[in-house]
């Protein structure tokens, strides 16, 4: 199979042109990151890693993005199943609304969220009385990250559910299973690969968020805000090691999660 693919690529001029174009895109993606990594001496990276503020910032970013993903998945995954399986009025409008955070400028999203969770708002006031501080707190970071990244999870999970044969869910129903049991024992396992992929994407998108988080909760400081702050205050040389360190930590996590998700499930694809 591999031999055939190589043969096709080599013998087809159009494929060669497309491959060259693809190479340029890859270069465009890799070059700035690689340049940043190569321009960061190991000694600088070690010094940066030793800074308490940097470690706390990266840790905060990791766990808040993970919390946003986990909390959202409780509602987003069943919602994705509804979108994949059911027809209802205004379904196209609902699908458009889901994609809204992707197209809204994230600073504008931050302003919108702030108005929603500020202490003088209904929700913000109630949360504050319950001891939850959104503005300037980790809870606010989680909300901002969730707002901008949840479309990635919903869309991936919806595609995963849609790709799983509905017939299998119907077969389970004819065997006497309740719809809830069918969801947890048939639908979820068959779509889990797409769901995990969507969760990884949501987590990644949450970690990389700057605009909305900076407006809702500049402090405690997450990695993207820290990088921006160091760049503004001290310049490129001081911002770059933090960026490289954060990038390295993210890469390790993503590779581990992707490898775990690659395990064979015997699911039909």
């Amino acid at each position: 199979m591999k031999t055939r693919a190589r043969h096709t690529l080599a013998s087809d001029p159009l494929s060669l042109v497309f491959a060259a174009l693809g190479g340029m895109v890859l270069l465009f993606l890799i070059a700035p990151l690689a340049g940043m990594a190569f321009n960061s001496p190991l000694s600088d990276l070690a010094d940066t890693a030793a800074e308490k503020e940097v470690r706390a910032s990266i840790l905060l970013t990791l766990w808040t993005a993970l919390a946003a993903t986990t909390i959202c998945s409780v509602a987003a995954v069943p919602f994705a199943w509804v979108l994949a399986r059911k027809q209802f009025p205004l379904k196209r409008l609902v699908s458009g609304i889901i994609d809204l955070p992707v197209v809204v400028p994230h600073s504008a999203a931050g302003i919108a969220i702030l108005g929603f969770i500020a202490p003088n708002s209904c929700i913000g006031g109630t949360a504050e009385r319950a001891g939850i501080q959104f503005v300037g707190g980790a809870a606010g970071i989680i909300v901002a990250m969730a707002f901008v990244s949840v479309p990635f999870l919903i869309n991936a999970a919806r595609d995963g559910f849609a790709a799983a044969p509905e017939r299998l869910e119907k077969a389970a129903l004819t065997l006497g299973a309740s719809p809830a049991r069918v969801f947890f024992t048939i639908s979820l396992p068959l779509a889990w690969r797409a769901i995990v992929s969507g969760m990884v994407m949501m987590w990644a998108r949450g970690m990389s968020e700057f605009g909305a988080v900076a407006i809702v909760a500049y402090h405690p400081i997450v990695a993207s805000v820290l990088i921006y702050e160091r760049f503004g205050a001290f310049g490129l040389a001081h911002a770059r090691p933090v960026a490289v360190l954060f990038l390295g930590v993210c890469l390790v996590f993503f590779i581990v999660v992707r490898l775990l998700a690659r395990e064979d499930t015997h699911a039909p694809r």
Binding site: L168, A171, T174, P179
Partner: peptide, 19 residues
């Protein structure tokens, strides 16, 4: 409801749960 009918259905292509 489907699950309360006590009708066993065998599909042409079996529809076994692959996982």
């Amino acid at each position: 409801r489907i699950q309360h009918r006590k009708m066993g259905l065998v599909y042409q292509d079996q529809a076994l749960f692959p996982h």
